[in-house]
């Protein structure tokens, strides 16, 4: 079955000659495009390790068929920093030791970025904990994760405010 699709991945448009409708976005990224930063922890939408942004929203890429996402804009962990400069969420994860083994980390970071975009949690740690509960961390780095998301959000918001002030 020939199923050509087109995806914009980390800002780069790619024409993909998909030959199998069963391929998930996760397996497409990992096994066919060598974007292995996105991890497979459960493959069933139960752990969050495969979280990516699709059209700006965080989703589980393991439960998304690639063919159904023709035309989508995808951001993975490989695409959030600028060159060597880390995204504020990435930097905050290091500063707060928001990980141990690191396997859930790309998913946590993408989820944190998605959460900040959603703007639903504010600076309430309880809301951050709830909204990050779709990302399991077996090492138990949750406290650092929550602190990191809160700090990065404050950082991003401060920068945005400053930007607005400058442009005003």
């Amino acid at each position: 079955m020939n199923l050509p699709i087109s995806l914009t991945i980390n800002g780069v448009r790619r024409e993909i000659a998909l030959d199998d409708p069963r391929v998930t976005l996760l397996d497409l990224l990992r096994e066919r495009l060598d974007l292995t930063g996105t991890k497979k922890g459960c493959d069933r939408g139960q752990c969050g390790a495969c979280t990516i942004l699709v059209d700006g929203r965080r989703i589980n890429s393991c439960l998304a068929l690639a063919v159904s996402h023709d035309g989508a804009e995808i951001v993975t962990i490989e695409g959030v920093g600028r060159g060597d400069q880390l995204h504020p969420v990435q930097a905050a994860f290091i500063a707060h030791d928001g990980f141990q083994c690191g396997f859930c980390t790309p998913g946590q970071i993408m989820s944190g970025i998605g959460l900040i975009r959603e703007g639903q949690a504010g600076d309430d740690p309880e809301r951050v904990r709830e909204c990050m509960s779709g990302n399991l961390c077996r090492c138990g780095a949750y406290q650092g994760i929550t602190e990191a998301v809160l700090e990065a959000q404050a950082d991003i918001n401060a920068k945005n405010t400053a930007k607005q002030r400058r442009s005003a």
């Binding site: 096994e31 292995t36 497979k40 880390l86 990435q90 930097a91 290091i94 690191g102």
Partner: peptide, 20 residues
């Protein structure tokens, strides 16, 4: 801070299944 921190937060840390 973790010496492998930057690798882990950028997705560059290669775990076994990331090899091809």
């Amino acid at each position: 801070r973790r010496t492998d921190g930057a690798l882990k937060v950028t997705g560059k840390a290669r775990y076994a299944a990331d090899n091809h």
